[in-house]
Simulated scan of single mutants.
Amino acid sequence: MNTTSLRRALVPGITAAALALSISACGAANEQNSGSEGEGTLSGTIKGGGSSAQEKAQAAWVAGIQDANPDLSVVYEPVGSGSGREGFATGGYLFGGTDAALNDDEGELTKAKEQCGGDPIQVPAYVSPIAVVFNVEGVDELNLDAKTLAGIFSGKITKWNDPAIAATNPDAELPDSAITPVHRADDSGTQENFTEYLAAAGGWAEEPDGEWPASIEGGEGGDGTSGVVTAMQGAGYIGFVDASAATENDLATVKVKVGEDFVEPTPEAAAKILAASKSVGTSDSDMAVEVARDTTEAGVYPVVLVTYLLACPTYENAEDAANIKGYLEYILSEEGQEAAAEEAGSAPLDRETADKALELVGAIK
């Protein structure tokens, strides 16, 4: 058995999900976004919102282009993926960020088509591992498989020295103490992706969803990524957050069992899953994929989210169209992808995927 370890802790002081990220921005002006407006020509304000997991990446993207167009202001509100999709579909946001693809489960896609006057553009922004984090006194490494994770978050495994946990951690001194699982209290794309993994690979009996099942008793809910981070300061707690919310320290990430290996939640391991995933886009402008969460390929980390950008193909205001187009082209450029990787620990898109996304974004009018 191949095991590896990665020690991480949660970053304290992450802002509340409703707090807007509002900083000056500029248009993209490099070799990767040839369709964008020229340097220094973008001005005005564009407002978007959604995924709180995108908050760090959005900050990096805005900072990365602000010098070229100081008269452009980008406002991004990390209110959660569900609220972001709803805001985009109803016209509250000119662009959106979501960790779960826009679909018609709740009529969001239909609303977005009506708002946009046609099929909305949905392109991947990056791939990111979802880190399972825990806080157990005396334990700084932990191996968990999908079935055990499903048992913990469904409330069926309640003690840290449960035989299922002990079986994959024979050398750990597991305490006879209660497990407190932490989930998201809001409608979360990260949560939807996590429960999809539990269902596909761990036998999770509930329907995967961005909202936590009301039928599951126990545990605690945190509002946004910051709420989970705050709750995780308690001993005996276990939760899940986008990897950008974790950094080096005494709290460890959980290793996830894939095949015969336990794999760390690294960007490189997360990015490998796209090769095994299939397209489920509903139109030519939709690049949504169905992640192969039940893969058994060694070295692949399956607890991931593919985070998306949402935009309309046309905007009534020419300035809005130019600004959205320039901003999204920068995000998808090599420079933008590297900026997100450095700031948020995400895996950059491969160039074939990014080029296809750039073609769609470049057609915004």
Rank of each mutant, 00 (worst) to 15 (best):
L6T: 00
L6S: 00
R7M: 14
P12I: 03
I14P: 07
T15R: 02
T15E: 10
A16I: 00
A17D: 07
A18S: 14
L19H: 12
L21M: 03
A28Q: 03
A29D: 15
A29L: 09
N30G: 15
E31R: 10
G40F: 01
G40V: 01
T41K: 08
L42T: 14
G48V: 06
G49P: 03
A57I: 04
I65E: 02
Q66T: 10
L72A: 08
S83N: 15
G84I: 00
E86G: 00
G91V: 01
G92N: 13
A100K: 13
A101V: 05
N103K: 05
D104T: 04
D105N: 14
L109Q: 08
K111G: 11
C116M: 08
G117Y: 11
I121P: 08
A131M: 02
N135L: 08
V136H: 02
V139Y: 08
E141I: 04
L144R: 04
A146W: 03
T148Q: 01
K156E: 15
W160A: 00
I165A: 05
P170I: 10
A172T: 11
L174A: 06
P175Y: 02
D176I: 03
H183F: 05
S188V: 13
T190I: 07
N193I: 10
T195W: 12
E196S: 14
L198F: 02
L198S: 05
A199H: 06
G202W: 14
G203S: 07
G203W: 07
A205Q: 09
A205D: 13
E206Y: 14
P213Y: 12
A214S: 14
A214Y: 09
I216W: 11
E217I: 05
G218V: 09
G219E: 11
G219M: 04
G227V: 02
A235S: 12
I238G: 06
F240L: 03
V241Q: 02
A245N: 11
N249Y: 09
V254K: 01
V256G: 00
V256S: 13
K257T: 00
G259T: 10
E260S: 15
F262Y: 15
E264P: 05
T266R: 05
P267D: 02
A269V: 12
A269S: 15
I273L: 12
L274V: 12
G281L: 06
G281D: 09
S283N: 12
S285D: 03
M287A: 10
A292S: 10
T295V: 12
G299V: 13
G299K: 07
Y301S: 05
V306F: 01
Y308A: 03
P313E: 07
N317R: 03
E319F: 01
A322S: 14
N323C: 06
N323Q: 11
I324E: 07
K325F: 09
K325W: 01
G326T: 09
E329C: 07
A341N: 03
E343V: 11
A344I: 03
G345S: 08
E352V: 07
D355R: 12
K356L: 14
A357K: 09
L360P: 02
V361A: 05
I364P: 10
